[in-house]
């Protein structure tokens, strides 16, 4: 491969990654609560969030075909690195230009805001790169572990955009036990319907209702629920509140998270 095509290839890959990062993370760049969260979230929670982001991006690069030829270990690790660096730079540049963060006057919270924002940005970058031409490889028969991982990633994308907002707290406060229970059922029905009933592009054949419901829909909902709980905890929504509120908030956030989980199985 000549140097020119190499450079072009790199430029295309990076360009797509920037596009993906913006597509997935722009709503969160422009969410006020995130700017405030930058001042309050403890450092160890942010460190855990970065760790989760890294694991997620490496997993995405590994399972879902990375950029060009990301088959070897070094290949997909390099790919995850590219997605992360693009996410970091995109988030920093956009947030500085929007005057959300001021790296000179306000280093600490600038860092915190960027750290929160790279989660969806890195997933977007990674996803966009995985669509890069011949290099993208999709496992022909996705293994079960991959599917569950994929659902968790989809849940993260949707949940990350909503988890920082005050609306989750408000909705959970207004939600009674009965509505919470109905919401869980509704989430499950939506998830199952998305994948098996309504005929979107990547629709799958159900291998027996009970089996696919138990193995994928219920497990996917559990993944979405866990992702929601982790994000809410990270943003301090569980601090000083009782168990009913914790469960209520998680159930509320698990609705978009489970739709994201189902959509991820169709799209990726």
């Amino acid at each position: 491969m000549s140097a020119t095509t190499d450079t072009e290839h790199l430029a295309t890959g990076v360009g797509r990654a920037v596009g993906g990062a913006l597509l997935f993370a722009l709503p969160l760049f422009m969410t006020m609560e995130v700017w405030r969260l930058g001042h309050t979230v403890e450092r160890y929670r942010l460190a855990l969030l970065v760790l989760a982001t890294v694991v997620l991006v490496i997993g995405l690069a590994h399972y879902f075909g990375a950029g060009p030829g990301g088959v070897s270990r070094a290949g997909y690790l390099a790919d995850a690195g590219v997605a992360l660096v693009v996410a970091l730079l995109t988030a920093s540049v956009v947030l500085v230009v929007l005057a959300v963060i001021d790296p000179v006057q306000d280093r600490q919270s600038a860092l915190s805001v960027v750290v929160i924002e790279i989660l969806p940005a890195a997933i977007g970058a990674s996803y966009a790169r995985s669509q890069l031409g011949a290099g993208s490889r999709r496992p022909q028969a996705p293994r079960y572990g991959h599917e569950v991982f994929l659902m968790a990633a989809g849940a993260v994308v949707f949940a990350a955009n909503i988890a920082p907002t005050e609306e989750v707290v408000l909705l959970a406060a207004k939600l009674g036990e009965r509505n919470a229970a109905v919401l869980v059922v509704l989430s499950l029905v939506l998830m199952h319907g998305f994948v098996y009933w309504v005929g979107f592009g990547g629709q799958e054949e159900a291998t027996g209702f009970l089996r696919s419901f138990r193995n994928l829909t219920v497990v996917g909902y559990v993944a979405a629920f866990a992702v929601s709980a982790f994000l809410l905890w990270t943003f301090g929504r569980f601090d000083g509140v009782g168990l009913p509120v914790v469960v209520g908030q998680t159930v509320v956030l698990a609705l978009p998270a489970s739709v994201g989980a189902a959509a991820a199985r169709l799209i990726l």
Binding site: H9, A74, D79, A80, G81, V82, L84, L88
Partner: peptide, 23 residues
């Protein structure tokens, strides 16, 4: 089978380094 280009390794390595620094 395409190989990951040097540029991508460099950029990827930079990303890894940045994330490690951040962590």
């Amino acid at each position: 089978p395409e190989r990951t280009s040097t540029g991508e390794y460099v950029l990827g390595g930079l990303g890894g380094l940045l994330v490690l620094l951040l962590l």
